[in-house]
Design a protein around this nucleic acid. Structure first.
Length: 278
DNA sequence: CTATGGACCTGAATGC
DNA sequence: TGCATTCAGGTCCATA
């Protein structure tokens, strides 16, 4: 479900409301992608200081309720079908509700039918398992660290198709299947172009397109393809703006040629063969 | 080191 | 109607 914009929208929808909350209980459901790494009861008495984001991970920073000392982090990943809810009260957990964090300011729940998501406790971001999970992520696309010259240099070292390089997230984090397709359309680049063959000026266009597409998607509240909603239940609207994603056979909004669909590494890639060139 | 394919899991949509 | 197949917003791991 969630790429960077959906994760960021989710973060914004409950970060303020949960900030400072004292954990009163925690419950696990069916196993997720990785084990929690701590007994749920051991979380009781800690506070949620802040909610940050790195790539597609949410980071709940915990502190000891009495001493205010740092008390680890909870990394939350939504996988393909995950979604968070945060409310004063929620119905009893159903078969797809795999993590409940009860606090004195509300109940945070992870709902994830496919269970590719995860909730992982780590002593700090610099310790495993958080360190290991975050180590492979590329730069944050909306930060100053993402700059055109370094982006171009990083692409020169990759021979794979640019779409798959973006999806892998090792160069720049956060673009998934929707936004990788959309950014490549906006930059006029065919998704199967070898990353190392992009000129500096085309890499610059792609750099700008990635930023613009992700920023616009956040403004629109993310994409709701089937069931995405923020932690307070708001659906997103970016899917209505999509130029190529999910539009196979429909006319390109720019030139009218039919949008094409191809497989790249067992993922669907949508593109306009007239507007996007190698 | 990089690139590729398989694995994980459930539910909805499609095809015969 | 029923059953099999395909596809879905991610990413880790083994293999070459």
């Amino acid at each position: 479900m969630p790429e960077l914009p959906e994760v960021e929208i989710t973060r914004r929808s409950f970060a303020q409301r949960i900030s400072g909350a004292r954990i009163t209980a925690a419950r696990l459901g069916a196993p997720l992608r990785w084990p929690l790494g701590i007994a749920p009861d051991a979380l009781v008495g800690r506070r949620v200081k802040a909610v940050d984001r790195r790539g597609k991970y949410l980071i709940l920073r915990l502190s000891n309720a009495e001493t205010a000392a740092d008390a680890g982090v909870l990394l939350i990943h939504l996988g393909m079908s995950g979604r968070l809810l945060f409310a004063d009260a929620l119905p009893p957990p159903g078969p797809h509700d795999h993590f409940d964090l009860h606090t004195d300011q509300g109940l945070l729940r992870l709902h994830d039918p496919r269970r590719f998501g995860a909730v992982v406790w780590s002593p700090s971001l610099d310790d495993d398992p958080a360190r290991k999970l975050l180590a492979r992520l590329g730069v944050e696309p909306l930060s100053d660290e993402f700059d055109p010259a370094r982006f171009y240099q990083a692409l020169r070292r990759r021979s794979g198709p640019i779409k798959q390089v973006l999806l892998a997230g090792g160069v720049v984090a956060g673009a998934g299947n929707i936004y990788a397709c959309e950014a490549l359309f906006e930059a006029g680049i065919r998704p199967d172009t070898p990353a190392c063959r992009l000129s500096r000026s085309r890499a610059d266009r792609l750099h700008a397109a990635i930023r613009a597409v992700l920023a616009r998607a956040i403004e629109r509240g993310g994409s709701t393809l089937r069931d995405f909603a923020s932690a307070d239940g708001q659906a997103g609207h970016f899917q209505l703006d999509a130029a190529v994603y999910g539009r196979a056979g429909q006319p390109c909004r720019r030139c009218g040629a039919p949008i094409r669909l191809m497989r790249q590494g067992q993922r669907s890639t949508y593109f306009c063969a007239r507007c996007q060139r190698r």
